[in-house]
Design a binder for these strands. Sequence first.
DNA 1: TGTATTATTGTACTAATTGTATCATTGTGT
DNA 2: ACACAATGATACAATTAGTACAATAATACA
Lengths: 139, 139
Amino acid sequence: MTNKRLTIQIDFRSDLPIYTQIVNQVQAQVASGILKPGDQLPTVRALAEELRVNFNTVARAYRILDEERIISTQQGRGTYITEIPPPKVSEKFRREALEELTQRYIGEAMRLEFSKSEIKQMVSDQIKAWKESDESANG
Amino acid sequence: MTNKRLTIQIDFRSDLPIYTQIVNQVQAQVASGILKPGDQLPTVRALAEELRVNFNTVARAYRILDEERIISTQQGRGTYITEIPPPKVSEKFRREALEELTQRYIGEAMRLEFSKSEIKQMVSDQIKAWKESDESANG
DNA sequence: TGTATTATTGTACTAATTGTATCATTGTGT
DNA sequence: ACACAATGATACAATTAGTACAATAATACA
């Protein structure tokens, strides 16, 4: 369990800077329990290579997360999820993460000139058709 | 596909201001599909040098296109064509775009361990709360 | 066991690239 | 001369990349 694969998806066209996207997604995964206390995150260089960004960009994200006490970075050792997640990482925050994700989705759908009812219908349909068997990536 | 060469022809004797000519030609190339969503435009300085104009003139054109939601500019990163498809694209293509967008959204939400009902509820709530104030940005 | 060496990891500082904001200059029409 | 719009010049801010460094761990070797 030392090294679980951190799944981060970067949208290089997003309005959000890359380092913000990393922060948000780590926050969300900690909040939702995907990342648990003690889990080691990839090294700044490893994650940077995977995301094809400069390792300083990852380091910046890690520094922000460190300041928020969500992770603990130690020079020469690595980066870990803190043992006592701050109250910020809570159900409230978990909900905020989904809100942000949802707003981004709706915004993009709206720009595609879909109506509200069309969007809701599509979400409903796609959720119904969603295959949970894809969750085999869980460890 | 990072940098396709943007062909803009400026007529310095035209009645139209340079920035208007840039706006018009980008609009036309987006409408005709020459420029596609996600394409990165030249930097304000690069295009300015190519056209032998001041980069603020290009920046002005980009700002207008940004306000029209045709492009998205991000300080420190660059300028991209937004995900608005040209109106002439078929309904089928439009629907496929929404499907893909929706699946990606649901996938991310599921990865954060939100339940199907939570997701549907959130979409419903956020759509209800969605601000139409975007429409007031028309000028 | 102890110590030197090397590798790995995060940090700090700086540079480069990008768009933004503000004001000055130029040109045109009245 | 004046008013206004278009363009240019300059300084700024945000993001990302480059380079060198420091702390820790792992290894080699006496």
